[in-house]
Amino acid sequence: MRLSTVILPFRRWHDGGADQWRRAEELGFHTAYTYDHLSWRSFRDGPWFGAIPTLTAAAGITRKLRLGTLVTSPNFRHPVTLAKELITLDDVSGGRVTLGIGAGGTGFDATALRRPEEEAWTPRERADRFGEFVPLLDRLLSQDTVTYEGTFYSAGGAQNVPGCVQRPRIPFAVAATGPRGLRLAARHGQAWVTTGDPKLFETGTPQQSWEAIRAQTEKLAKACADVGREGDGPERILLTGFTPDRPLESFEAFVDFAGRHAELGFDELVLHAPIPDSPFAADQRVFERIATEGVAALGG
Rank of each mutant, 00 (worst) to 15 (best):
V6Q: 12
I7P: 04
L8I: 15
P9T: 01
H14I: 13
A18C: 11
R22T: 10
F29V: 03
P47F: 11
W48R: 07
W48M: 02
W48E: 05
T54W: 13
A57Q: 08
A59G: 03
R66W: 12
T72D: 07
F76V: 06
F76D: 00
P79D: 05
A83L: 02
A103T: 08
G105A: 04
T106L: 07
A110M: 00
R114L: 09
T122I: 01
T122K: 00
R129P: 01
G131L: 03
E132R: 00
D138N: 13
R139N: 10
S154R: 15
C164F: 00
I170P: 04
A173C: 10
V174A: 04
A175Y: 09
A176M: 03
T177Y: 14
P179M: 10
L182V: 06
A186P: 04
T194C: 02
P206H: 08
W210R: 12
E211P: 02
I213Y: 05
Q216I: 08
A221S: 12
K222T: 14
C224V: 02
C224M: 02
G231V: 08
R246I: 11
P247V: 03
E249V: 05
F251T: 11
F254S: 07
G259Y: 12
G265W: 00
D267R: 09
L271E: 10
A273L: 14
Q284Y: 14
Q284W: 14
Q284C: 12
R289C: 03
T292I: 05
